[in-house]
Design a protein around this nucleic acid. Sequence first.
DNA 1: CACTTTACCTTGGTCGGCCAAGTAATGAGC
DNA 2: GCTCATTACTTGGCCGACCAAGGTAAAGTG
Lengths: 168, 168
Amino acid sequence: MDTGHAATADVPCTDALPGAALGGPVSHAVSRVARLHRIAAGKLLKGLGLYPGQELLMMHLWDSGPVRQSELIRTLDLDPSTVTKMLQRLEQTGHVRRRPDPDDRRAVLVEATDESCALHAAVRDAWGSLEEHTLAGLESDERAELTRLLAKVEANLCQETEGCPERG
Amino acid sequence: MDTGHAATADVPCTDALPGAALGGPVSHAVSRVARLHRIAAGKLLKGLGLYPGQELLMMHLWDSGPVRQSELIRTLDLDPSTVTKMLQRLEQTGHVRRRPDPDDRRAVLVEATDESCALHAAVRDAWGSLEEHTLAGLESDERAELTRLLAKVEANLCQETEGCPERG
DNA sequence: CACTTTACCTTGGTCGGCCAAGTAATGAGC
DNA sequence: GCTCATTACTTGGCCGACCAAGGTAAAGTG
């Protein structure tokens, strides 16, 4: 097999695209954007004592009050074990309280602590500016188009992975 | 069957984005799409003995021949420690060989093993179908638009995170 | 009522990814 | 030549995320 290592030295400048990206420009872009987005979120959340990912869980908690863990799993569409561990850490850092559900002794009720509620506004704000930062320079119609296309892509990826909540 | 992961049974209609999403629809969509995309990639790569993320590294290696580790770090735009650990695992699974650079005793030269080259076509193929699956139902102009918008978003996120390789 | 299935959650392991801190070699300045 | 900063990589720790497997409690079935 020809390993075809032609790229490093004297290629007549095909505009740099690392070559690997040629095989799937959108896939590539999605990963990169997601990673950068996560990093940006992390920086904004760092001052608030949250790690990226946790804010979504907290937002749902702030929004919905006490909920079953299974509710969180369904809403966030994450693996149960992921949520368990996130909650363990959030409990340890005092953002969340868990207690057994009296109506169903298998279940666990989760709610945001009062202290965590102080972060609510800050987190909402952080997400707002993150969204704005993400979409800077895009016109309204571009934003709408991006949203539409991402939804379409999500639906595509969903149907096979079989793991996402149906949408109307 | 349903191991409890996101049951699609009788969800009480989580229909219109759980409220948490209202604060940043695109941010939300990006995370979700990226996760689904990663899962899909993982399924395709599973049969090839690779984990999602590793394929990008391997593709670059197949493309470029022996390279310095720093080259990989720069190209993939990852943390050095991430690349180190990925390479350790790839070395252990026989996909990659590492040897010290004779010209610079700090540096490490990395190259794909011959056995790994057998995967080259399969991986390229997998990425091709993943890209196609991702973009199913999108017209050419929609694809171009999505690519353009993602690039714009990436540039936005880049400029502040300050961690991405300039292009162009 | 026992028996089986299903739902809810936990544990343990693995990977990708980050940061922070450390080692070692190169290179620049004096 | 010696010091000092820079570069290249490693280590350890942590988090999100997955899967696989387990334990317990509720619900379905005979």
